[in-house]
Design a protein around this nucleic acid. Structure first.
Lengths: 287, 287
DNA sequence: TTAATAAAGTTGTCCAAGACAAATAGTTGA
DNA sequence: TCAACTATTTGTCTTGGACAACTTTATTAA
């Protein structure tokens, strides 16, 4: 259930006590068995919470109402590219067609624009489509794999220039999403920065050591919206203390956008567009 | 601690009660704070358990003795390629050199041989080197990223032939290791099979649906040694029941090698070499 | 001596309810 | 309009008991 919903065991228990939901059946040993509709409702609630809703307010609502609440989320942003075509290919399992359309789009717009104008909005659209029940988990997985291949191939095609800044890219142990890291790496590679990609889930002590031995100028962390809210600021403060002041610390992803107060010595990467400006600023400052 | 050691919260608690280890300090709120040496010992124990040791027997030993126990693990297999060179490059952070040596080796031996003779033994060697404290977590991460890039690029270079069998590749929700899936995909791609790579952590219901809509002939699952032992057989039986009998079900990875009794209708992929034979057999049978 | 069976020991996961710190919302006063 | 204070909400940690499933050892039969 933790994996399926993104909610911790303790949270599920305390919700049972407080809100009488979820209300799982019990098997012959008295252990909880969650009906599929409760799992779906929990997933919806989790996603709405990531958008700022509070559990106590929405947990009593029916699935239909929750769906409606989420429906109006990403509608306002209609990108320049028609995302509907992509979504249709995803939900109709046209793997080769989807692959070539993505490749074509990338070739046409260039890597940076492809990420900014197509992949980022498409990720949001896919998330929404999953939420409204339009596409399934495995369809999302397949799409992710495809994008990952595309990005890794593009990055490999650019390859080392040895220019500054040297950016260490990773996420903390609780954060397993890596697609954001790849997008950042691709964009930075185009800018001519040298990336040290550690992949997701690097322990803090290792980040500090890696930054030292690889002479990183910037340590960039990614936080998805499923990263525990309370932990983001805490982890960043701790890491800031452990890193030499000379090294910049950047925090990106939807999880870091929720930060209320800025943290001393930590820069928030609001968007990939802004990240380009930040690289420019770093270069000016270090010149 | 769960992430850092791979041991569940409950296991850590019950060990405290039964074996008086770990014995974490407490902060001002009475919450557990684990000294670094206890974390290391726990990691060692976890790894030794994956090799068949039982916790009660080894938990009382000192770190030195545990290290010695693990040291004699993979020594017998000295591959044809000199792994020492790779290990040295990893531990001395020579990223570009490591990258090009891997590429060269791949070009020289061919993709399949590269995986069988270099990557597989190297993965084991890296794991052992981590265990003996020779390389750090972040160095292992960097190596993983590199291999992943290499494999994904190689797979992309082969690309679709539309030949059978159609193999759906994924792992179950608790299993996050994906490098084994990539190696399998690469080897199968060379054989001309069509892969549907869903990445790791696909819920069982989604695997069934995906197998249907993509007309998969074979569903191949990967289990690493950190997958809960008791769950492997259980999950496979359940999935076997949910899949049509016409679809083959293959289980690979170190986690599935621990299966004592074979499961009706499930084939164990003992090694990548054997997988090639299995593909051949499938083709003969389906002709 | 071997093989099968039973008993004893080992091990991980689940259960329940309590406590509390931190975050959020609501209220009041300047 | 903003800041400070209070009340409420919320998630995570705590403890120890229970037990099913697995392993090992002992016992019995062939």
């Amino acid at each position: 259930m933790e994996r399926d919903t993104g909610l911790s065991k303790d949270t599920l228990r305390v919700w049972e006590r407080r809100y009488a939901f979820p209300n799982p059946a019990r098997d012959q040993h008295g252990e909880r068995v969650y009906p599929i509709e409760q799992v779906e409702k929990l997933r919806l609630i989790k996603r709405l919470m990531d958008c700022g809703h509070r559990p106590g307010k929405i947990i009593g609502q029916s699935i239909e109402i929750l769906r409606a609440l989420g429906g109006g989320l990403g509608k306002e942003s209609t990108g320049p590219v028609d995302l509907e075509i992509f979504l249709n290919l995803i939900s109709s399992h046209q793997l080769p067609e989807l692959r070539s359309l993505l490749s074509q789009t990338m070739a046409r717009s260039g890597l940076q624009n492809f990420i900014l104008k197509t992949i980022v909005p498409l990720n949001v659209a896919v998330g929404d489509a999953w939420m409204s029940g339009r596409i399934a988990v495995f369809e999302e997985h397949l799409y992710s794999e495809l994008v990952q291949n595309l990005l890794r191939n593009a990055i490999a095609a650019i390859q080392p220039q040895g220019r500054t800044p040297r950016v260490l890219l990773t996420s903390l142990p609780q954060e397993q999403h890596s697609i954001g890291l790849l997008m950042a790496e691709a964009i930075l590679a185009v800018e001519g920065a040298s990336c040290i990609p550690l992949g997701p889930q690097t322990p803090m002590a290792d980040i500090v050591t890696a930054a030292r031995v690889h002479h990183a100028d910037i340590v960039a962390l990614s936080f998805s919206s499923s990263y525990p809210e309370t932990k983001v600021a805490e982890s960043l403060k701790q890491l800031r203390l452990a890193l030499p002041v000379s090294k910049h610390l950047w925090a990106g992803g939807n999880g870091s956008a929720r930060l209320r107060k800025p943290i001393e010595g930590v820069q928030t990467v609001v968007s990939f567009e802004k990240m380009l400006d930040m690289v420019k600023l770093w270069r000016e400052a270090s010149a």
